[in-house]
Design a binder for these strands. Sequence first.
DNA 1: GCTAGCTTGTGAATCAATTCACAAGCCCTG
DNA 2: CAGGGCTTGTGAATTGATTCACAAGCTAGC
Lengths: 217, 217
Amino acid sequence: MNQFTSPAQPLKRIAESTVRRLSIYLRFLEEFEGRGRATVSSDELARRGGTTSAQVRKDLSVFGSFGKRGLGYSVPELATSLREILGLGREWKVVIIGAGKIGAALAQYHGFRERGFVIVAAYDTNPEKIGGTLEGIAIRDMQSFESDVTRENPDIAVLTIPMHSAQEVLDRVARAGIKAVLNFAPAQLHAPMDMAVKTVNMAMELEGLTFALTNAH
Amino acid sequence: MNQFTSPAQPLKRIAESTVRRLSIYLRFLEEFEGRGRATVSSDELARRGGTTSAQVRKDLSVFGSFGKRGLGYSVPELATSLREILGLGREWKVVIIGAGKIGAALAQYHGFRERGFVIVAAYDTNPEKIGGTLEGIAIRDMQSFESDVTRENPDIAVLTIPMHSAQEVLDRVARAGIKAVLNFAPAQLHAPMDMAVKTVNMAMELEGLTFALTNAH
DNA sequence: GCTAGCTTGTGAATCAATTCACAAGCCCTG
DNA sequence: CAGGGCTTGTGAATTGATTCACAAGCTAGC
């Protein structure tokens, strides 16, 4: 295998940590691409990404063989392969549920559109918000959610809603057939197995910090 | 040991995953506290938290012995112990660096003050923002950062700044003596070992989702 | 076209985290 | 106050992730 030959199926379950690191490598590759650099070694990717060269090579080896011995990796080729592996070769339709401050921050986040994520709508239940816009994106009534999803088929739902309604909304999202959710509510959500849910929990991150501060040396 | 008898020192390095789960358990305990529930079993905590009862017991056993055999854990006692372990028994002073939309969303985030985090100031380099307020918090000139830190001794810095300046600002934060950072810039930061840095990287989370969608069965 | 110098790809070894499984304890009932 | 029913705490076993270490392969220089 000299190229990423889209393996028939997930040969083995791929570790989440591996995927996260691929994201990191891709970030550096894009930086190098911008500077017109031709090749990069596993060792350099490792130093930048805070890991080891063996780890970089193991991570990549799960998906194929991308390098040339003695030389390293072609920056544009590896970047293209990683984008393909990570599913960034296409556009993804995103809906934001919850038109609050976090929703607004996300809606205007530049990195979103840059990477092929298109926010098609925002939803809320507050009549004062419905009909307005969130950073230029129409805020719709949550009541029309199911029929909108049927029509527009968004790929990803971003939940920026209060904790107490999070599970209920997730269930609705699941029933509507959306298979990926990015959750900002500080709640542990239970979803069907065929769904991908990532939770960003600020309280948890902060507590990781206070734990470290409290138990320092 | 029948109580959390604050162990002399971190006996062994404690896994980050353990600390994250303690956070989750605490969230459920607080919910139970609110409902006046007296006890809870490792099995119930596990089911709610999406893990196993053995895992719950192992996690807790790192810090002491909190339960009663045959009965389970006292909800208020375990909650108190976990708050103590996680360092939530005191107030923490937080500064936000970068008075943009994400900074604003964080500044108004309720969960912050509720858990003992007090935002003492926001910083920016944009003259149009300096002197204004971010959700009621004064926006100061980044130039006064070092002298302010010397005077006020904040515990935690939250970075909501563009990627390209993130490492530079982190270095400044480190030199100023702050030992904990919550980073929202999509950058891999390198910090001195005695600092705790948590990065929340939305791009990475989204790519975890698109990977899952792309490689779904 | 041969040699020196790198760097990959990958089994094997190590290190870390999770799960198993069960003795030890506690509570309640009668 | 003895027995049954639960549930904890924890070594041992297992599973998973990372690191080691080296043969294989490529490039460049001569």
